[in-house]
Amino acid sequence: MSAIIEVSHVSKSFGGVKANEDISLTVEKGSITGLIGPNGSGKTTLFNSIVGYHPIDSGSIRFEGREISKLLVPEIARLGLLRTFQQTRIYGKMNCVENMLISIPHRKMTLLEAFRRNTPEERERAEHLLHFVGLYEKRWLQAGSLSFGQQKLLEFAMALMNEPTVLLLDEPTAGINPTLINGLIDRLKHANREFGITLFIIEHNMRVIMNMADRIYCLAHGRLLAEGTPEEIQNDQRVIDAYLGAH
């Protein structure tokens, strides 16, 4: 395995608040990597830095060996590095199938190819993926009328439709009905294994992340606190202290 995302010595502050300080981590190609940490430890800030939502103060971020810390959001997304939002973002006025068809990988298309209608294969794939996340019965419904959890699943299906190389997921299980979480874990693992998508996941639910991740990074107060396999992290006293607030 080789590193697909390399974050080295990244710092980012908002005003006087140091949201990220000298963070270095790598995400291996084909892995599931977790990012944990108490609220306000700078996880989403790091995600936003990677996908280009704001400039970083110092350090470098590489994707497939290429420096991306100066690129803009659409440029990074077109490299195949995709993210989902903590507050889901779907096209509420369109139905689920339309949402999926918008999500076809435009980066692999020439301008001329855009001047074509969606192919039957694309429709089939859309329905297949909607089936995969369990929204097949609801495929003709307006996406905005779905429940929050279902919208989240739709956003996940849209991300898969896009055939990304790496998918950054910001709290995929937050707001999802607890009985559905096991199903979601299976689907994430499936996406990783069968579709070959590298996953980089922010997660609050310890059980979920310990269950899935090959490697976990833990942030606290904007700094990298610990890294290791799920077992190492679970037994790391610093991580336990950070979560219990014993500082």
Partner: peptide, 30 residues
């Protein structure tokens, strides 16, 4: 035109441009 992928893409730009960008749609080109 409005039935093509192109037409769908500009609808996506209208409804949520930031999301469309995050999905790798060539927003400026379209």
């Amino acid at each position: 035109f409005y039935q093509t992928r192109f037409g769908k893409a500009i609808n996506a730009i209208r409804d949520d441009e930031e999301k469309a960008e995050a999905m790798g749609i060539h927003t400026l080109r379209y």
